[in-house]
């Protein structure tokens, strides 16, 4: 009896992965571009599909079942970290249906954000004079850095942050200190407008 239950459990668990592999095979292009949307190379899709077919089969057959199960567990945890926070960003309702606790994800994201901002604020306080109006330029600047880099693209965000710093110094030197902040905000407008025209060629828009 317990053997039978075991078998059913194995079949059901394996079925989850097999169905997912099946779906991926029949929409390879879509899945690839979806993965690339998260900054993951699309080529990784092929090993993923192989993994999702072979390991469940091993579990059903019983060959190296423990090792296969362990590998699948690691795979699940890794994908959860890469894709699930983003899933909340893409479609909160669907994520909720799929069992992601969206409220917790929001809370955690906001918490991490607040903690990092607090650290940054403490560091700024060491080097700059403080006044209640330091905030707005930072808000718009940080938004701008992320827009230039593309949402969710971490290395590019770091790079574009440095680039903006360099631009500001050059603007200060070439145009004069009085136009320093103005130049930064105009750059924001120009970048947004440039990206808008670039996307408009494909009849798309920034969203």
């Amino acid at each position: 009896m317990s053997n039978l239950v075991d078998l059913i459990a194995r079949l059901l668990i394996s079925a989850l992965f097999l169905i997912s592999a099946y779906n991926k095979i029949f929409s390879i292009d879509g899945t690839m571009s979806w993965m690339e949307g998260f900054g993951i190379p699309g080529m990784l899709l092929y090993p993923t599909i192989v993994l999702e077919i072979i390991l469940p089969l091993f579990i059903i057959v019983g060959y190296k079942a423990q090792l296969s199960a362990g590998l699948l567990a690691i795979f699940c945890i890794a994908t959860a970290f890469i894709f699930h926070i983003s899933t909340t960003a893409q479609n909160a309702r669907a994520a909720k249906i799929l069992g992601v606790d969206t409220e917790k994800v929001y809370a955690a994201t906001f918490g991490i954000n607040a903690a990092l901002c607090g650290i940054a604020g403490a560091l700024i306080a060491i080097t700059l004079t403080l006044h209640p109006y330091v905030g707005l330029p930072y808000t718009v600047r940080s938004f701008m850095i992320v827009i230039v880099a593309g949402l969710g693209n971490l290395p590019a965000v770091a790079l574009s942050g440095m680039g903006l710093g360099v631009f500001e110094e050059f603007a200060d030197y070439i145009l004069g200190t009085e136009f320093r902040i103005g130049a930064v905000f105009l750059l924001l407008v120009f970048i947004l407008v440039y990206r808008r025209f670039k996307l408009a060629k494909k009849r798309e828009y920034l969203k």
């Binding site: 009085e178 136009f179 103005g182 905000f185 947004l192 808008r196 828009y205 920034l206």
Partner: peptide, 26 residues
Amino acid sequence: ILGLRGHYFAICTLGLGIAGGEIAGG
């Protein structure tokens, strides 16, 4: 500017407003 939508439009106009002020101040 109006080809932008949602947040992007809002932040772009905010940038425009601040840039205008800063430039006028120079």
